[in-house]
Write a protein that binds this DNA or RNA. Structure first.
Lengths: 257, 257
DNA sequence: TTTAAAAATGACTGATTATTCATTCAACAA
DNA sequence: TTGTTGAATGAATAATCAGTCATTTTTAAA
């Protein structure tokens, strides 16, 4: 149900998030969308790998599979392309988090959101770092679009935190602030993976981070709920997570290549 | 013991932290050091304000107060200058944290370190972000120098966390990991100040962050210590800011009666 | 099939900028 | 004073690259 509402929201909203500050010469809106997606995807990849300034428009065109001139039919400047790339990445992140499996307990829902966020950051480390590094390369007028995209994603988590407060599991803390800490915990995995990787596995990172937040925020009734959550987690891990394949529990996400 | 080793490490190490990968044409080492400090300071300022790629070597030379050619007597490439600038910033950060007032209680010492870190990040926001944004613009061989500088700074905090664990105030958590969270909390203030600023004041940010960590990490005996700490903080705030627990009874500065 | 509009091309241009180097300067010793 | 050396200069160079535009190709309407 939640998922249904969400997807409805995004089909509607998706177009809105490609801002009209970026002008196109081409009339056909469908083509514009398709080409821009090509451009954004290619740009996200190259910018992530080589950085914004080290990537030339010629390289980008080659990656897109068409000529350099064509890019300028769909964006006016290189900075426009950066904006498209960043929004591409951020929307993808948001979609992934939205599609995370749902749960009954508000506490568990926070955990699931955090895990989804960490997972997508882990999966697209380079892209996550791109967002961090390059926002400041945008012209000022473009930045608000990024901020909005970020706020929209954070709201997914903030809602769940608020639910925990309403349910009496969390103390009456500032949900936005806690959300930021959670988001940061996810981002940190990409920012500092060169260090974290050696200290801790992905699953443990998520779990220990969550543990920390819960211990800091929880009420007495929340503590009980957390115990229940941990117990059910343990049981779930003992059977399996997604695919009924291996016997090694849910540990597979911990190492990636 | 660990502490002793750390400070020994730093007095000895300070010069070493200007890496010899950066070659200079000039013989006199004193002059090299002076000029490089000039260059690094100017570069840190300009790169912070306008970004690495948007800053030209001519601008940088002007900011230094000498000619563009001279820079190339003290560094071989623009990337070398970036490395100098980043190390300049990070060393400054470390020095500020080192110089933070000290205290008896291990718990308080963690707080002081966190506060010092947050303060310096707040004070040099742009420089802090520079470190985040630009490390990836460095050639691979340069990056390890940055990493080392970061590890050295973190060690200042990690030691204090370990002391808390040894004193029985904190659970037996991974001190390096907790340190990272603390550091991140400080960095977040610069990364996301555009959002945080509206939610919370600097002092509250530091205090609430610390509160969170303590609640999550503390043992029973630590909880008592934390109460004591909070009480003494409150008292200190009532008299004045700076003076550390002296017996002067607040004679020269009476905030309000 | 013809035609015209839209989409796509990629060689080119103009501006920018990291780096070089022939020259000047300053300090000091003989 | 003169000569030598290392430091400093800044105009010139060489390379790069964002953005343009005259031309070609594709699409689809007539």
């Amino acid at each position: 149900m939640t998922r249904q509402r969400a997807s409805e929201f995004f089909t509607k909203d998706h177009a809105d998030l490609v801002p009209d500050v970026v002008k196109s010469q081409v009339a056909d809106p469908e083509l514009v969308q398709r080409r821009r997606e090509q451009i954004a995807a290619a740009a996200a990849e190259l910018f992530s790998k080589n950085g914004f300034y080290r990537t030339t428009m010629q390289q980008l065109a080659r990656q897109c599979g068409f000529s350099s001139g064509l890019i300028y039919q769909y964006a006016e400047t290189k900075e426009d392309v950066l904006l498209l790339a960043l929004l591409h990445v951020m929307n993808r992140f948001r979609r992934e988090i939205e599609q995370a499996e749902d749960a009954e307990s508000p506490l568990e829902r926070v955990f699931i959101a955090l895990e989804a966020y960490c997972r997508v950051v882990d999966q697209f480390k380079a892209a996550a770092m791109l967002a961090y590094r390059s926002t400041m390369s945008l012209p000022l007028e473009h930045r608000s679009y990024i901020k909005n995209a970020e706020i929209a994603t954070n709201e997914l988590i903030a809602t769940r935190v608020r639910d925990c407060i309403e349910a009496g599991f969390f103390r009456k803390v500032d949900a936005d602030l806690v959300t930021y800490q959670l988001v940061l915990h996810a981002h940190a995995w990409s920012l500092k993976s060169w260090r974290f990787n050696k200290l801790i596995s992905f699953d443990d990172y998520v779990a220990s981070g969550f543990d920390m937040f819960v211990l800091a925020l929880v009420t007495d009734s929340g503590r009980q709920e957390y115990q229940r959550f941990l117990a059910s987690r343990k049981k779930a891990a003992k059977s399996k997570r997604r695919p009924p394949a291996s016997a090694d529990g849910g540990q597979k996400l911990s190492k990636q290549s």
